[in-house]
Design a protein around this nucleic acid. Sequence first.
DNA 1: GTGGTCTAGACCACC
DNA 2: GTGGTCTAGACCACG
Lengths: 128, 128, 128, 128
Amino acid sequence: MNNDVVQFNINSKSGVPVYRQIIQQIEQAILGGLLEPGDQLPTIRSLSIKLKINPNTIAKAYTELEIKEILITQVGRGTFVSEKKINTDELERKKKAEELTANYLEGMQRLGMDKHETLDFIRDFKED
Amino acid sequence: MNNDVVQFNINSKSGVPVYRQIIQQIEQAILGGLLEPGDQLPTIRSLSIKLKINPNTIAKAYTELEIKEILITQVGRGTFVSEKKINTDELERKKKAEELTANYLEGMQRLGMDKHETLDFIRDFKED
Amino acid sequence: MNNDVVQFNINSKSGVPVYRQIIQQIEQAILGGLLEPGDQLPTIRSLSIKLKINPNTIAKAYTELEIKEILITQVGRGTFVSEKKINTDELERKKKAEELTANYLEGMQRLGMDKHETLDFIRDFKED
Amino acid sequence: MNNDVVQFNINSKSGVPVYRQIIQQIEQAILGGLLEPGDQLPTIRSLSIKLKINPNTIAKAYTELEIKEILITQVGRGTFVSEKKINTDELERKKKAEELTANYLEGMQRLGMDKHETLDFIRDFKED
DNA sequence: GTGGTCTAGACCACC
DNA sequence: GTGGTCTAGACCACG
């Protein structure tokens, strides 16, 4: 069995708090359907080892998502995607995608590329 | 003359320090050619009013860019893009673009869109 | 000026997490009108000294209330009662009072006092 | 015979450990005379089903009360209130009642009700 | 094994 | 001065 549905990608130099990067990536994974209601998330300890991050930092991310009722945690069992508040609706997803895209296009524009050039750049971009 | 070549876009909720966002956006603008050696930057006061940000924060960004010799401040005249260290070289620019793009594609993938769908999404995306 | 509108009363032996006691008492104070929108809460450091508790524990309580949009924090200024989501409505207050009362009456009943005896007990109870 | 003399009331969200809530409520029931020396307690299994709680948790509560010599377990027969150490003395009971009452009145005060209003509130309070 | 609480302490961002 | 982030480590509750 493989819990690694979410490929966490932490950039500790970006200035974005690590715990916030985790929150964002979990939220995106839920919106994108990678994580579905009832799915178990990696345990705090396993993720902390994998990402080489202090367990408390992972816990902080999970806790915030629990307060928002996006995750549910059961001590002794693990942390799961909430069955209730599934914001998987298409609108929310589109909104997040637009936000990401707007930010991205702005960044590329500052680097001197308009939308057309950016599209070309992505097309030539090697997927890792 | 118009100082508003750079369209600053500050997100105070992102967790990225504001001064760092300013630095990054100025650097990108220089790399992208929007700002050229000798160009004047907005004064601290005007930018602080426009972005509704504490002047100290703008000053901190400018100071850091001065230390990097990317900007030069001439007392009583203003702050300018340095003639010296222009990192406009194509490689640096491409590297930044690749970083931005990789992050972006990862985010979109988590939202359930592959490269092809993302390209479609950008094409349909209305520029603000 | 006196910030001590809320008389925090922490019982570290009760088994209820300290940070949760703080949360509960702040929520009650807001519902009861002791704390009003815009009011500043004691700073993390001052409260941590007063209650002889680690600042992180206070911060954890404030953070949870911020996620719930009950408090707003401005770094460098302090933490304040949110202007927006004021749950001061009478219904919410009554609900909390009923919860408290039900718990209390159950406890007294287990100690062998019915409602009538409990009312007598309260009447004779010396306020400290 | 009816074992349901004690109306257990577990709140798993309160932060108070479940096993501690059970202990407290049994102790209160003994102090209040609801449970008398020699009375049988519900079996671990039946209580775990009724309260939807892990049997280990019930066992932990009973064990701790055995250590305190408040309960006695007779293998194959069940768990009983000890004949020996009955802390039914009036002073102990009054102390517990005062503690409960002080906490309660503080909570109500934070919700904006003084002793008089609280008495009215209890009078109008419908017993479940 | 799981997550939760709390402490102590370092460093950062912002006013 | 304010709060925020992160680490390290101890101990607890629960399965």
